[in-house]
């Protein structure tokens, strides 16, 4: 085995040589910086550097767990991520299937462009748009007043914040996420549809019997990846849309870390501890999802 591997490397040495820079990249920029994780168990001293700082055991983690706000952020992160998987994740599949059913090629393109475009607008700009739209003097409230209703404080209402996150993120990202499914759909052999047609399947039956099974594998892999991101919760979006009024339902781990990290100079250790905590949980979730998908007969990642 070893001999054959060695021989194959020698035989394909140029190809392996070409692979080297990529491997080097991963080692240098992904694996080497990992030693920074040590900070989670250290009391960081700037002059001493990461390796020279004294060990602190699990003090950083203990500090973290003692903070009431951290657990609020933790719960919010899980709930928001779960919501994203339940609500936003299927939306992209449904959109891809729907666009696929549009028969006129021209309309198909138009729809695809329209849905994809918001992906390129940054959250900073979207938050400005939303303030103008949903704020107290915004369009929506002006309409409400014009029809004789009371104004609504939508942006500061903790109960509405999570739906706001889901809806705005769907508006922004659904078209972009659908692309990968549409690519999978485009790869389906047309003969399958023809055969189904000959068997008398209508369009809905074709969708269920041909299209969906063909993209199910893709969906499973994307689902595993989405679960692996569950502890992230979307910093960019939350950070730009939230305000103190909605911390109760909207503050996620990343925004919490951002707010607390630099207020106290000694907290490099604690924030690294949070990062490590998140990474370990993400890893566990990824594996669990992978395991479940495999058990259900799908193809996993690993």
């Amino acid at each position: 085995m070893n001999k054959t591997l060695g021989r194959s490397i020698i035989k394909n040495r140029y190809v392996y040589l070409l692979l080297l820079p990529t491997v080097l990249y991963f080692v240098l920029f992904q694996y080497v910086p990992m030693y920074g994780i040590l900070l989670a168990f250290k009391e960081y001293k700037i002059k001493a550097g990461i390796l020279g700082s004294p060990w602190a055991g699990f003090d950083n983690f203990a500090q973290l767990i003692a903070q009431a706000d951290f657990w609020q952020a933790f719960n919010n992160t899980i709930i928001i991520s779960l919501g994203r998987i339940l609500i936003e994740f299927p939306a992209a599949i449904i959109l891809a299937l729907l666009i696929n059913e549009v028969t006129r090629e021209k309309f198909k393109r138009v729809y695809q462009t329209v849905y994809t475009f918001p992906h390129f607008i940054s959250w900073v700009i979207i938050s400005g748009i939303l303030l103008n739209f949903l704020g107290d003097s915004g369009v929506l409230n002006q309409l409400l007043v014009a029809f004789g209703f009371d104004k609504q404080a939508i942006l500061t209402n903790p109960e509405l914040f999570r739906p706001l996150l889901f809806i705005s993120n769907m508006w922004k990202e659904v078209g972009w996420s659908a692309i990968i499914y549409m690519a999978a759909i485009a790869g389906i052999n047309p003969e399958l549809y023809e055969a189904a047609h000959v068997d008398g399947a209508n369009r809905f039956q074709q969708l269920m019997a041909v299209t969906w099974p063909s993209i199910r594998g893709t969906a499973a892999i994307l689902l595993i990846l989405a679960v692996g991101q569950a502890m992230n919760g979307g910093f960019d979006q939350v950070f730009n849309l939230y305000n103190p009024g909605v911390y109760k339902t909207g503050d996620i781990i990343d925004t919490y870390v951002y707010r607390t990290a630099f207020s106290d100079g000694a907290s490099f250790g604690v924030t690294t501890a949070i990062g490590l905590f998140k990474a370990v949980l993400n890893f566990a979730l990824l594996y669990a999802a992978n395991y479940i998908v495999k058990r259900l007969g799908g193809e996993g990642l690993v």
Binding site: A153, P244, G245, R259, T260, S263, D264
Partner: peptide
Amino acid sequence: KDKLSAINFDDDFTRVILS
């Protein structure tokens, strides 16, 4: 006292006003 810098009064005050 140094650790009190972790308290963000303005955020909490705002929260009370809005609730």
